[in-house]
Write a protein that binds this DNA or RNA. Structure first.
Length: 432
RNA sequence: GGAGAGUUGGCAGAGUGGUAAUGCACCGGACUCGAAAUCCGGCGAACCCGUGUAGAGCGGGCGCGCAGGUUCAAAUCCUGUACUCUCCUCCA
């Protein structure tokens, strides 16, 4: 949610900045018209209310003295009707204003590359050496299926498209990866959290999924409850409506959670493999910071995500998304994309965003600055990392010609000493 | 799923139709070499509108979980609803 007062003061700035995200200037004008109308109506109704309050007070005094106040009551009665009429108009106007304003995205930072499409993203750095294969590298879904550790067919039978079973060492690998990630983040100062996986509509609104993206989530139990599309929702809403003691800032939290997404509109994309599932695991990082610290914190958070890939020794690059490609709430987003040999390209594994005060204004999450004034916190979120995609990358980058997969060194302890997944050790019950 | 109780300022806690007690905490001052104690004064989240250089000051609105209703007037009455707690049932 943007600050309407600031928008009122400098409409041209907002039109220019939001234009880079595809917001039409007429939308801003409409918001400002409704804002003006709101203030006009408020002045009228508040003047009447002041009048009524004064009259009521006099009636009260008269009654105390035992005097007759019938005439004054009759006169004041009319005021009540007028007020009710005006208040209805105010409410209707407020609703329109709020709906419009809640659908306008965050203001992009000046350093964000301007483009309405994903083309034009800035590459910040490229890390790691891309492995040269002396055989044709296989896709992870073929590797996983051949080893028996990924079973897409039976998931399709039991659940449907875009679901998967992990088995044996595959399931263990997934668990090893997210335990490794959580341990690394704890070393970096994050507090581990195990949040609820179902949240209410107010939380979805707070982080900005609602009202715009109702259709991309799974709702349960009628309208209100939603399976989380990301742990960002319960982590960021954790302090919703609160004033955070200043000495606690910055707050770093991390959580593993499943993420549920309907992937409406993604039909036909990434139909094979682990890349785009209705349910996947993700380790999420969330920070609450003071306003002046959030840009530094974004860089640190991105580094926390990169740290995982460095230790896993998987090549990646970091890009800054364009104005048109960023998520609704972000003022700037760094994506980490890891290397998928079989696809011969980088694929997104993390998205780290500074949402500035955009979510905090929706959630009313504040702190007191050095003058004792209330300020909105800045919120950041980033994947640290998407677990399924990381597993996919391990399978592809660490595959051997015979179809086996070597376990990255840092994960061996998490795999209880297993150094390689082979057809023989992959799924015990298949080898009886 | 059934029954009951509760929801008031940072915290505790009064208030059953006349416009939110009191205590603690907090802020300012006095006393003191200083601090504690004590005394005096102030302050009741945030928010919204007007005025204004101002997130100062001043004026107004709103404000007792939330949303409606009755009334000149609602924390108080009525209706609905959310959440919390207790007991029963159930369950990992």
């Amino acid at each position: 949610m943007l600050d309407i007062k600031k928008m009122r003061q400098d409409p041209d700035f907002y039109k220019k900045k939001l234009g880079t995200r595809g917001v039409k200037p007429e939308e801003i004008d409409e918001v400002l018209d409704l804002d003006k109308k709101r203030r006009d109506l408020l002045q009228k109704t508040e003047a009447l209310k002041a009048q009524r309050n004064e009259a009521s007070e006099k009636i009260g005094e008269a009654k105390k003295k035992g005097e007759n106040a019938d005439e004054a009551i009759a006169q004041t009665r009319k005021l009540g009707a007028d007020i009710k009429e005006l208040d209805k108009k105010v409410d209707a106007n407020d609703e329109k204003l709020h709906d419009l304003l809640a659908g306008i995205p965050n203001i992009p930072h000046d350093d964000v590359p301007v483009s309405l499409t994903e083309e034009g993203a800035t590459e910040l750095r490229k890390v790691g050496t891309i492995r040269k294969f002396d055989f044709e590298p296989k896709h992870h879904w073929d590797i996983g299926t051949n080893l028996g550790i990924l079973d897409f067919d039976r998931a399709h039978k039991v659940s449907g498209a875009r679901f998967v079973y992990y088995l044996g060492l595959g399931a263990q690998l997934e668990r090893a990866v997210y335990n490794f990630m959580l341990d690394e983040h704890m070393k970096d100062g994050y507090t581990e959290v195990l949040p609820p996986y179902i949240v209410n509509a107010a939380s979805m609104y707070g982080t900005g999924q609602y009202p715009k993206f109702r259709d991309s989530v799974y709702r349960v139990n009628g309208e209100d409850m939603t399976l989380i599309p990301t742990a960002e929702v319960p982590l960021t809403n954790y302090l919703r409506g609160e004033v955070i003691p200043t000495e606690e800032l910055p707050v770093y939290v991390t959580a593993l959670s499943p993420c549920f997404r309907s992937e409406a509109g993604a039909a036909g994309r990434d139909t094979r493999g682990l890349i785009r599932m209705h349910q996947f695991n993700k380790v999420e990082m969330v920070k609450y910071t003071k306003a002046e610290d959030s840009w530094d914190e974004l860089e640190k958070m991105t580094a926390n995500g990169e740290n995982i890939l460095k230790k896993l020794n998987i090549p990646y690059h970091v890009i800054t998304l364009t104005t048109g490609d960023m998520s609704f709430t972000a003022a700037m987003t760094h994506d980490i994309e890891l290397w998928m040999p079989a696809q011969n390209k980088y694929r997104e594994v993390s998205s780290c965003s500074n949402c500035t005060d955009f979510q905090a204004r929706r959630m009313h999450t504040q702190y007191r600055d050095e003058n004792g004034n209330l300020q909105y916190v800045h919120t950041l979120n980033g994947s640290g990392l998407a677990v399924g995609r990381t597993v996919a990358a391990i399978l592809e980058n660490y595959q051997n010609e015979d179809g086996s997969v070597t376990i990255p060194n840092v994960l061996v302890p998490y795999m209880h000493g297993v150094t390689k997944i082979t057809k023989e050790n992959a799924v015990p019950f298949r080898n009886k």
